[in-house]
Write a protein that binds this DNA or RNA. Structure first.
Lengths: 132, 132
DNA sequence: CGTCAAGTAACAATTCCGGTTGCGAATATC
DNA sequence: GATATTCGCAACCGGAATTGTTACTTGACG
């Protein structure tokens, strides 16, 4: 798998879960379908669990399941749960003693923050139940 | 220097050039001011040269200079010249034989493209002459 | 008690990026 | 014309980040 695959893996999995919310899935099942490793799956889905989007149960007949109805989970929820920005932030300068550098950083950072807000707004408009 | 520093370096340098457009600067000068290496500077500024934003001259009294008045160079020009997206693209799946995967990819990609357009629009509203 | 599955730590493999060196080409100065 | 200076470029190194993998622990169910 390539880079930046965490969001892809998370959305892909939740998309399938939305289609059959009651089914319990193990990380091995999910990993096989997604073409990756069970540990990787647990790493990614663990974030979603901590964010309250998924429930996980151990032992026999254990696995993963949606913690909320799929209509109540938006793409923004998943994006924010992963805490992994798709919007690059400006490289912070250690010693911003240059006024030009400082002004540029402020300007571009301001734009990027607006863009990030806009992205979240767009993602919040779609739930995982709508993606099939 | 950290990641995503190419745009920072480019904008920083052009910002200074905008304040004194006639001065010729060598990559060694620029590198020292930016705290990096002359070769790195040439790598980054070389892209801007190919995009028509900068002129470079070899030999004695050679160096770098703006190719256009600073009022005619926007942040978007620099961003596009570097051909380095600040917006992450979705990991392309090799075999998109999964309909959920496919639908998700289309949905998210569509949003990301809108966001990228929006970013460029925002960057195009500011010229390097305005950042001081 | 044994099995199954998540949770987690540790390590290897890969990729990406800036930094560095070296050399060639072009141009100004002597 | 010789020399010095500067960009252009290719090759390689090293660090950082990410994914893949192994191994072990914890907890739940039959």
């Amino acid at each position: 798998m390539k880079r930046n695959s965490r969001l892809s893996l998370a959305l892909h999995t939740l998309g399938h879960m939305a289609g059959d919310p009651d089914r319990m899935r193990t990380s091995a099942d999910i990993a096989e379908h997604a073409g990756t490793n069970p540990v990787v799956v647990r790493r990614v889905l663990g974030r979603l669990r901590k964010a309250g989007l998924l429930d996980a149960e151990k032992g026999h007949s254990g696995g993963w399941r949606l913690a909320r109805p799929p209509q109540d989970i938006t793409l923004a929820d998943v994006y924010l749960a992963l805490d992994e920005s798709l919007i690059a932030t400006m490289a912070e300068e250690d010693a911003p003693n240059c006024s030009v550098e400082h002004a540029l950083h402020r300007k571009v950072s301001s734009v990027m923050e607006d863009i990030e807000r806009s992205l979240i707004e767009r993602l919040a408009a779609t739930t995982i139940a709508e993606v099939k």
